[in-house]
Amino acid sequence: MALFRRRKTGRALPGFGLTMGYTMLYLSLIVLIPLAGLLLKSAELSLGQWWEIISTPRVLASYRVSLVTALAAAAANMVFGLLVAWVLVRYRFPGKRIIDGLIDLPFALPTAVAGIALTTLYAPTGWLGSLLAPLGVKVAYTPIGITIALMFVGLPFVVRTVQPVLAELERETEEAAVMLGARRWRIFRKVIMPELIPPLLTGFALAFARGIGEYGSVVFIAGNMPMKTEIAPLLIVTKLEQYQYDQAAVVAVVLLLISFLILFAVNALQRFVGRGIRQIA
């Protein structure tokens, strides 16, 4: 097999065999073999058995809860992430550096800590929960609570993909639009936005894919009621605790497929949008 074999380039650097060998060995032991084990386990079942597991109302409901909340959170983050990135790149204001640093907190903060803090905050007796309760809005232990937890986890993905693109935008294009008499809002829509759509889509996809698999920040606020607020990752844990290993494996494989599909779909859309913009220009 010619794959991974070094091409003759005449380069004099040493260490290819050693580093490549170690890379492949470590990758296989930690990632490839364990993941192959998952596929193997789920392949022990027939298609009929697969369908039987996947089509139970509880499993379908858990996929729906995970998909809908992750989608809502990623969409909300597209809007707010763009707002935050815009403000951080374009304006100067007191406290800007602190806000910029805090955006990464969800990457650094253990998900369990975020989970219990958000639950306490949005519980009916919590600071925000008690403000929302008179309005009839229940957040904790509902899909809204799950969505808020996923917004917390996903925000940095959108901000950190949009920010560098926004910072690199050519000032000249905007200058030209001003010369041609375009108003600010029109410039934003027609000149700036098209450039931001690819990074927004990437950020959306990353936040969405992360949200579908997220566990720690969600389990506390979700309430975990089967059919209503039970997310797919939690259902996998439940099946494991009941020693239904093959069922857990099947639910997991489908969940993995869903997140890969999302990443690929957005990647394809990305290319499509990119081509579209270039054709117009």
């Binding site: 993941l35 579908i212 969940l255 997140s259």
Partner: peptide
């Protein structure tokens, strides 16, 4: 791109 729960499950 693997859910943390699945990362435990495989082991």
């Amino acid at each position: 791109s693997v859910s943390p729960v699945i990362s435990g499950l495989i082991f």
